[in-house]
Amino acid sequence: MEFSVFRLMIMSCGLLVLSMSLYPWFWSIGIHLHSAFTGSYVPGHHSVLLINSPTEQVAKDIGRAIMERRLAASINILARTFTMYYWKGKIEDGNEILMLVKTKTSMIKQVVDYVRSVHPYANPEVLSFRVEDGSLPYMKWMDEAIQDD
C-alpha cells in the first residue's frame, strides 16, 4: 500500500514538472483555441517594441536581422525623429531613427537580447507595449509570420 502512494506521488511530481516545461506550448495552443472558438483576441499576446537607432542603415540592418530570425512579423522604420534626453546630468538632443517592431509578447526577450548584442549604443532604447486589441485577421497573420515559441 505504501509503495502505491509513493509511486503516485512520484508520478504526480513528474506530471507537474512536465506540464511546467510545456507551459509556453500550452499557452500558445490555448490562445489559438480561444480565438478559434470565440472569434476574439486575447489581450497581451502581441506587443510592439520601440527601438531607436543612430542611422537609417543601422535600423535597416537590425530590422532585417530580426526579420530573418523570424522574431517579428513586421517592422516599420520611421526616418528622422528628433530626440531629447538626459545624459550624464544634462539635456541632449539629436536626430534618430525609430523602429516599430511587431511581435509576439513571448518573443520580446529574444528580440531585446539580439538588439543589445548588435546595437551601437551602450544603452539602446528598447521599450515594449502590449497590444490590447486589434484586427483579428492581422493578429492571426502575425502568428503565422513569427516562428513558433
Rank of each mutant, 00 (worst) to 15 (best):
V5E: 15
V5Q: 14
F6H: 07
R7A: 15
R7L: 15
L8W: 05
M9N: 08
I10W: 15
M11E: 10
S12Y: 09
C13E: 05
G14W: 11
L16E: 03
M20V: 04
S21M: 13
L22M: 12
F26A: 04
S28M: 11
G30L: 09
L33R: 01
L33H: 02
A36D: 05
T38N: 10
S40K: 15
Y41R: 07
H45T: 15
H46D: 11
V48A: 01
L49G: 02
L50K: 03
S53E: 06
S53C: 15
P54W: 09
P54F: 11
T55D: 09
T55F: 13
Q57C: 07
V58G: 12
D61F: 04
G63W: 08
G63C: 08
G63D: 04
R70I: 04
L71N: 04
A73I: 14
S74P: 00
S74N: 04
I75F: 03
N76Y: 13
L78F: 07
L78C: 05
T83D: 10
M84W: 09
Y85A: 05
Y85N: 02
Y86C: 05
K88S: 04
E92C: 12
N95Y: 12
N95G: 03
I97N: 01
M99H: 02
L100M: 11
K102P: 06
I108C: 11
V111S: 12
Y114E: 04
Y114A: 07
V115M: 13
R116W: 11
S117C: 12
V118A: 13
V118Y: 14
P120Y: 09
A122R: 08
A122H: 11
N123T: 15
N123I: 15
S128N: 04
S128Y: 06
F129K: 00
V131C: 03
G134N: 08
P137Q: 07
Y138A: 12
K140P: 01
K140D: 06
K140C: 08
W141N: 03
W141I: 02
W141Q: 05
M142Q: 10
M142T: 08
D143R: 13
E144N: 14
I146H: 06
D148G: 14
D149H: 08
